[in-house]
Design a protein around this nucleic acid. Structure first.
Lengths: 215, 215
DNA sequence: ATTCCATTTGACCAAATGGTCAGCTTGTGG
DNA sequence: CCACAAGCTGACCATTTGGTCAAATGGAAT
């Protein structure tokens, strides 16, 4: 019972640890394989090998390939939603937009696989997360668009279409994850260094902020 | 013989027509299926059904699934390269960048499937077009980056990293194709109208041009 | 008309894949 | 230590899929 685990002196029982560890192991492997091969190209065997577990073990933790995939997509979505905090916490447009760009660039760097899985899912018509788009994401977008419109109405930034501004922010920040391989190739075959990531972030911030009259 | 076809009075012989027509039929169907299902999720049977031909016929024109896929990717790549013309023809930065945005937004609208196929290919590490990235695309990028740097040096626009500017242009314009489904959902479930596409293009142009000091 | 070659296609095959299951091992509460 | 449940896994299976092929059909040059 989970009660036992929760109340028995030493944090969690061995069993709970095993479960959590293996699920994490599988999810991490799945994220990478789905990103690199797409849903159709990914195989449970590949994911199992990458996780270092027998294939049958995957099906013990995740009933079907689709279940596993759904979990991977949900995780990146939540990470992105949380980046809204940096947007909401700000009091000025420059601060809010700037912090949001920084947060999303940081996510692109730390979770490139998840970003790709999301991109592929949406490109294919969002077969498994359509409801999220219609509820959570729609609400999220409308709320932020309203905030931006408020800034414009208050004369704090240039009049731009808030929706398209949001699309542009998503496009640019996620591009560094989704097209990371292309960027790496054009960078002479080497991944962007810390310095280059900083430069990329600054470039995006500079152009966008000046672009909305906050330069 | 093809000589016969070329020199026989009526343009091309029936044979040549058939070949061209069927190849076009297959390529169009393949572009759509690869975009909607990914390379791994696409099946020759699906493509055949969409093209209205028996599966064996596909293998008569394209030896393997990979051959067919390669052709689809090459086509969109060439379309994009040609968009460079609008960039090169311009004499001022505002004109060049503006025209390039318009050209690429137009392509996103007219070839959303191809754009998605390209995006998926790059996201998966460009397994079949890596050589293009390292040769053609690298040269293309370096040349345009040099042009932009020239404008900056001449004081015609604000100093920004030319590479990152190019990445941003690609990201934003292609976003309207690759994430078209998401945008459509956030647009109340309806595809963007002519007017809305124009507004999107204007938004991108306005923000970018002002962002590089050309507002 | 006849010959030759391009085109078409139903039937077929070997390999790969998602998923199942029965039996085994291991942890845990009593 | 025991009994039970959770966790593990090799072997297996039905289905799908890319690709093949031989036989049939159709166009065009002589």
């Amino acid at each position: 019972m989970q009660e036992n685990a929760r109340f028995s002196g030493k944090a969690a029982t061995r069993r709970t640890d095993i479960r959590r560890e293996n699920e994490r192991l599988i999810l991490t492997a799945a994220e990478k394989v789905f990103a690199e091969a797409g849903y159709g190209g990914a195989t449970m065997q590949l994911i199992a090998d990458m996780a270092g577990l027998p294939k049958a073990n995957l099906h013990y933790y995740f009933a079907t390939k689709e279940d596993l995939y759904r979990r991977v997509v949900q995780e990146i979505f939540e990470i992105w939603l949380n980046a809204a905090a940096s947007f909401d916490a700000a009091s000025t447009p420059a601060e809010g937009i700037g912090a949001y760009i920084e947060a999303k660039m940081d996510i692109s760097r730390r979770h490139p696989h998840g970003s790709k899985v999301w991109a592929a899912e949406v490109m294919q018509g969002a077969p498994v997360i359509q409801d999220y788009l219609e509820t959570t994401l729609r609400d999220w977008t409308e709320n932020r668009a309203r905030v931006i419109q408020g800034w414009i109405d208050a004369g704090q930034m240039a009049p731009v279409n808030p929706r398209h501004l949001l699309y542009m922010l998503w496009a640019m920040t996620q591009h560094y994850a989704d097209f990371g391989h292309q960027i790496e190739t054009l960078n002479g075959g080497a991944p962007l260094t810390d310095r280059q990531w900083q430069e990329a972030t600054e470039s995006v911030k500079t152009i966008i902020l000046r672009g909305v009259g906050l330069g």
